[in-house]
């Protein structure tokens, strides 16, 4: 019984010797666990935690990557909310995007996942693949460009003019009236990602005997089944999908960037992410870009809290 821990009095049980001593003892006993956790945590802290935490202090400075940061107090945040008209456009656009790619796409992926689940096993596999495939592809924008293009290559214009709906070609990718809807549609097209898969899998997880019991209890059709059995037993998956949806819907911007360019005409599809990229990588005003990112983080956290609260209320 040679105990190497000199701090620990061997005569009294370890959990009676004060909280800190006990914790320290447990840390020592479980040092293998920290060893297993270490590689992940080191990389995670360096490449995710530090950038997120750093964005606040840098947000208070004027920093251009070359000179040392100069403290400017709240002026970045003042400018952001009071003087930067483009930022307000970006906030508006981000909110519009967030509504469509957030709640709308969330409900849509739920409905599609549910409908797929009603199919024959082979069709299930096929449809899951079909609906998930777009989110795996980043290179198919060119097809959308081809379809939507405003010059003589554009298919949609050609078809519409043949039918007689349009009298002249519409500039879908540069006309400010069309940019936002067009980007939303393409964004929806690729938005069936990890959240969709989680919901799909959640359906498969439900005990079949529950449905049989439900049928005996008098459930008449699939709608009743959906609301009384399926949704209540899928809470955790729904929550996971919601978190994934929030993070993707608040950071939209890449799709628009490759489809309509950065900045888009009159900033019509400019999102907060685009704004941050604009200041960070084109103008090298890192302080300002950090302030933008920090605002975005706070918005994401708040949205997450709200969704947790809403779903938590509904599910239990």
């Amino acid at each position: 019984m040679a105990n190497a821990n000199t701090n620990v009095d061997p005569n009294t049980p370890i959990n009676k010797q004060g909280k800190w001593k006990y914790t320290w003892h447990m840390v020592k006993v479980n040092k293998g666990c920290y060893g297993l956790l270490a590689p992940f945590m080191i990389l995670f802290i360096v490449f995710t935690v530090i950038p997120v935490v750093m964005s606040l202090p840098i947000g208070f400075t004027n920093f251009n990557m070359i000179q040392t940061p100069k403290l400017v107090g709240f002026s970045n945040f003042y400018t952001l909310f009071l003087n930067d008209e483009v930022f307000l456009i970006a906030v508006r656009n981000t909110l519009i995007f967030a509504i469509f790619t957030g709640p709308f796409s969330y409900v849509l992926s739920f409905i599609i996942a549910w409908l797929i689940n009603e199919m024959h096993p082979f069709l299930k596999t096929l449809f899951t693949f079909v609906f998930y495939a777009p989110s795996m592809t980043t290179s198919v924008y060119i097809t959308w460009q081809l379809i939507l293009s405003g010059d003589s290559y554009g298919y949609l214009n050609a078809v519409m003019m043949d039918i007689g709906l349009f009298t002249s070609p519409k500039q879908f990718l540069t006309d400010t009236n069309y940019i936002l809807p067009v980007v939303i549609i393409v964004q929806l097209w690729i938005s069936m990602g990890a959240g969709f898969l989680a919901i799909r899998a959640g359906f498969q997880n439900i005990d079949k005997s529950m449905y049989e019991a439900g049928a005996i209890e008098g459930i008449k059709n699939r709608w009743q089944e959906l609301f009384t059995i399926t949704i209540p037993s899928m809470g955790p998956q729904l929550l996971f999908a919601a978190v994934m949806q929030i993070s993707s819907s608040f950071t939209v911007g890449v799709v628009g960037q490759s489809l309509v360019g950065l900045p888009s005409t009159d900033y019509a599809a400019h999102t907060i992410m685009n704004h941050a990229t604009d200041y960070g990588t084109i103008r090298y005003e890192m302080g300002y870009a950090s302030a933008i990112c920090f605002v975005l983080f706070v918005a994401m956290l708040l949205a997450n809290k709200a969704v947790n609260w809403l779903l938590g209320k509904y599910l239990d």
Partner: peptide
């Protein structure tokens, strides 16, 4: 919580790191 930040929003700060 980090599931939320597994996104490109950290991109600019990461560049400095």
């Amino acid at each position: 919580t980090a599931l939320l930040f597994a996104s490109n929003a950290t991109w600019i700060m990461q560049f400095m790191v």
